[in-house]
Write a protein that binds this DNA or RNA. Structure first.
Length: 569
RNA sequence: CGGUGAUUAGCGCAGCUUGGUAGCGCACUUGGUUUGGGUCCAAGGGGUCGUAGGUUCAAAUCCUACAUCACCGACCA
């Protein structure tokens, strides 16, 4: 490709709207342009990268036995009514009508379409298992699109769906997908980790997320420093503290704590560490049919944070997790938030394992402006249950039993689920078995954020001059950068010759034939992250050499012109 | 959804307080100059100042509404 026949849209200045480095560099290097909030045009260079990611994903999916399909982005509402998600899926689902006022949605995912397809096309157990994937645009009307293509509303996703007649078969395919994902991210040249994940509302057995590690990530990942355990913090189990709970030694005493409404304020006022206080949060419980939701108290150690996912996965708690309003708090506890405590509370109480291990703790007295000191479980507060409802923190023992927890940020680029029968049940998707009986299928689903990977790769691979693409996804393998080609016939001849050879060999090379000063060319190619710069200058031609600069290492080497092709073998 | 801020040329910004013919840098065009790390000089082109309404002799500037964009928050006992 010659630059004169190509579009290079580099920017010297960083657009003000770009916050994270990958977004800034994607704009500056001319990979994408913003069209509206969360919507992007992929410019030629960006598209080259996107296609490379896509191809690696496709190759590995096919190698793993999945077969490619393509489903429509616009889907009829009745499919979503059949699965129940027309009502369950919130405003992220963009709904629209056609000219006949028939309702449709823009597909945020394709379980409905694929399940319907399989239910129509597959009639016998002999045709299974089946694993189909597509690489296609998704639309999710995100609350807050941000970070460029990292969290766009329209994005490119690889989604695969597998169908089975047994859990055992599902588990086998799940493992095959797990391994395929590892190969994909290895080939992409990214530092990644598979982590145990929450299944969310889908339920089912197993689920792993694949995270690219980067400080700008939106998820917290808990690692063990003593094993290869890794889990999303949403899912990482917080173990009960070791040993028996210490015996009560203090008397329960009510103390005045004026204006101390937060744990920090209470701990400071009473001069005790936050670790010997508890905080009590009131949330809505699961409502019985036709009744109003009960209020449930959640008790945590003062320095800990509630894990909303763990909480809302408890059967007695309403999902999504909803905090009680001020009026509900006043009615249930007899005081305002800031003075609630488990002592004498007449609503159901769920205590976190760590809070349940405390003795002689400080808690709210259910009376504005007062707290208890010396409170103890069983003696002062009864009728509670103990659950794991907090986020793990650094230094906690790993739930795997080896090592301690370390927390890092990650960008979720893949997620695999064992779905079970949720969709197959709802959409009556089954086959006839060997014994002639009808069997509902068990499903798995496997997603990869293709466009997000491009941003994640940049987060992991850049420096002050621009992007440093991993070789597998670089838009060009090399750039020919001639010095003042218009002044030197020798330079031009060498550059043209090299370009012809590289093209002949099928190597993707960008020939910078612009009449620009060297500095401009260097800056552009480094910004765009081309792995190898082939610098052709008059001063090296007497030795029949050119200079080769490696973008990743910064290393410059002199290479004989007739040996240049060896760099690509 | 709540909070904050922004909206003036393709990009980055000034001008607004105190109303009076719309500016700067980058980019772009032309000519010259320079040429192994974003040269320098000169001359140009490009803007319904987000939209609608209001106040005024006069509005980018003051007022009202709306729209769009961005950031923060959605851990609060």
């Amino acid at each position: 490709m010659r630059t004169s026949q190509y579009l290079i849209s580099t920017l010297k200045e960083t657009p003000a709207s770009a916050e994270v480095v990958s977004h800034q560099l994607m704009l500056r290097a001319g990979l994408v342009r913003n069209v509206a909030s969360g919507l992007y045009t992929w410019l030629p260079t960006g598209l080259k990268v996107l296609k490379k990611v896509e191809n690696i994903v496709r190759e590995e999916m096919e190698r793993a036995g999945a077969i490619e399909t393509l489903m429509p982005m616009v889907q009829p509402a009745d499919l979503w009514e059949e699965s129940g998600r027309w009502d369950d899926y919130g405003p992220e689902l963009l709904r629209l009508n056609d000219r006949h006022q028939r309702p449709f949605v823009l597909g945020p995912t394709h379980e409905e379409v694929i399940t319907k397809l399989v239910s129509n096309e597959i009639a016998s157990y002999k045709q299974l298992p089946l694993n189909m994937f597509q690489i296609q645009t998704k639309f999710r009307d995100e609350i807050r699109p941000r970070f460029g293509v990292m969290r766009g509303r329209e994005f490119l996703m690889k989604d695969a769906y597998s169908f089975h007649t047994s859990d055992q078969c599902l588990k086998e395919t799940y493992q095959i997908m797990f391994d395929a994902y590892c190969r994909i991210f290895e080939r992409l040249g990214l530092e990644f980790r598979p982590v145990i994940a929450d299944n969310g509302s889908i339920g089912g057995e197993g689920s792993h997320e694949f995270h690219v590690l980067a400080d700008s990530g939106e998820d917290d990942i808990a690692f063990s420093d003593g094993s290869d355990f890794a889990a999303n913090v949403e899912k990482a189990e917080a173990l009960a503290p070791a040993g028996e709970r210490p015996a009560a030694s203090a008397e329960l005493a009510k103390v005045e704590t004026p204006d101390a409404k937060t744990i920090d304020a209470v701990a400071k006022f009473l001069d005790v560490p936050a670790t010997s206080t508890v905080k009590t949060l009131l949330v809505l419980g699961q409502a019985e049919e036709g009744e109003t939701a009960p209020i449930i108290a959640l008790v945590l150690r003062g320095d800990h944070e509630l894990n909303e996912v763990k909480a809302e996965n408890l059967p007695e708690i309403a999902a999504p997790l909803t905090f009680a309003t001020e009026e509900q708090i006043l009615a249930a506890a007899g005081c305002n938030a800031g003075s609630i405590g488990p002592v004498g509370l007449s609503i159901p109480v769920i205590v976190d394992r760590s809070a349940a291990h405390l003795a002689d703790f400080v808690c709210g007295a259910n009376e504005d402006g007062f707290h208890f000191t010396g409170a103890n479980w069983d003696r002062d507060a009864q009728n509670y249950t103990i659950q794991d409802i907090r986020n793990v923190v650094e230094g906690d023992p790993s739930p795997c039993g080896r090592g301690n927890i370390v927390i890092k940020r990650g960008i979720e680029v893949g997620h695999i689920f064992q779905l079970g029968k949720k969709y197959a049940d709802a959409m009556n998707c089954g086959v006839l078995m060997e014994n002639g009986k009808h069997e509902t299928l068990t499903m798995g689903c496997y997603g990869i954020g293709v466009s997000r990977i491009v941003a994640a790769a940049i987060e992991q691979n850049h420096d002050e001059n621009g992007i440093k693409w991993p070789e597998a996804i670089a838009p060009f393998k090399a750039a020919i950068v001639p010095m003042n080609m218009h002044k030197s016939a020798r330079v031009q001849e060498t550059a043209e010759g090299l370009y012809a050879q590289l093209k002949q060999a099928g190597i993707e090379v960008l020939f910078d034939d612009r009449k620009e000063r060297p500095g401009v060319m260097f800056a552009d190619h480094e910004l765009m992250g081309t792995p190898l710069l082939l610098i052709i200058g008059e001063r090296n031609l007497d030795n029949k050499e050119i200079e080769v600069k490696n973008r990743i290492t910064g290393e410059k080497t002199m290479v004989a012109i007739d040996k240049v092709m060896d760099l690509f073998s």
